[in-house]
């Protein structure tokens, strides 16, 4: 589904600031991946670059989606392909209701994918159905997008949007950060419900905590702009116990970094 090949990325305004330094990653349908790593290792940047953020420039390598490069596509065109990003810091859009935003988004994507668009009543039914997944009340639909939401509500709203838009590939950028245990369970449950055989989910996270509730097929550790190690969920447990230092040492011993 997604193939990231030797991806090098810098900040567009400051090319000397290199953030990704050769990332390789393959994600197949039906898989759940977790990307972990210390602050500043490039995890968030990787998700934004896949989604098409313009502040970053790809200097080397490629991102293939179903075999085709998406580097030349705008963010909205990537969304039309079924790529979704749950934001680490969801943005507020005052005066625009969740419902209006999502209906416009849903229908734009549906049109691009040749699926049937939903009229306001059909959409309302569809959206209400998904609300249950994140345990939100119906008035949630009428509230302005993220405006005045608590941190936890914003994160749940991202999962709700994912549920409504039914993407094929979702990057969840620290969706678990700042959640209390109840909210974390709701979010994790939503992710489990939404992941299936024909889609894939990538959890970008600091903590092993969410992996108690969502079972990843693969765990990757990112350090200094590269995937330093990949493994199964035991790797996450080892990271929780031992931190990242043992990996940093390995990397520097190999002389590749630092």
């Amino acid at each position: 589904m997604l193939e990231i090949k030797d991806l090098h990325v810098c900040v567009e305004e400051d090319p000397s600031e290199k953030i990704l330094k050769g990332v390789n990653l393959t994600i197949n349908e039906g898989e759940i991946h977790a990307i972990m790593g210390p602050n500043g290792s490039g995890k968030s940047t990787l998700s934004k670059v896949v989604a098409g953020h313009e502040a970053y420039e790809v200097t080397q390598g490629d991102i293939l989606y179903n075999g085709e490069s998406i580097l030349d596509l705008e963010a909205d065109e990537r969304a039309h392909l079924g790529i979704f990003l749950a934001f680490q810091y969801p943005v507020e859009v005052p005066g625009v209701t969740n419902k209006n935003l999502l209906r416009q988004a849903y229908n734009t994507i549906a049109e691009e994918q040749g699926r049937e668009e939903l009229d306001p009543l059909q959409f309302e039914d569809h959206a209400r159905e998904q609300l249950k997944l994140v345990d939100m009340k119906e008035e949630f639909l009428e509230r302005s997008v993220n405006a005045g939401f608590s941190g936890g509500e914003k994160k749940r709203n991202e999962i709700f949007q994912m549920a409504v838009l039914q993407p094929k590939l979702s990057f969840l950028d620290e969706t678990d950060s700042g959640l209390d245990i109840d909210a974390l369970k709701i979010v994790a449950n939503g992710i489990n419900e939404l992941s299936g055989e024909d889609n894939a989910v990538v959890l970008v996270t600091h903590y092993q905590r969410i992996l108690d509730y969502v079972q990843p097929d693969h765990v990757h550790v990112m350090i200094d702009g590269k995937i330093a190690k990949s493994g199964d969920k035991d790797l996450a447990i080892k990271l929780e116990e031992q931190g990242y230092d043992w990996l940093t040492d390995t990397v520097s011993v190999n002389g590749e970094q630092q």
Partner: peptide, 21 residues
């Protein structure tokens, strides 16, 4: 970027933001 990520082009994104405001 947020609205574009949800599938809207730049025109629609700005129009939505301004109309909401």
């Amino acid at each position: 970027f947020y609205l574009q990520q949800r599938g809207m082009d730049e025109d629609d994104a700005i129009s939505l933001i301004v109309n909401g405001f």
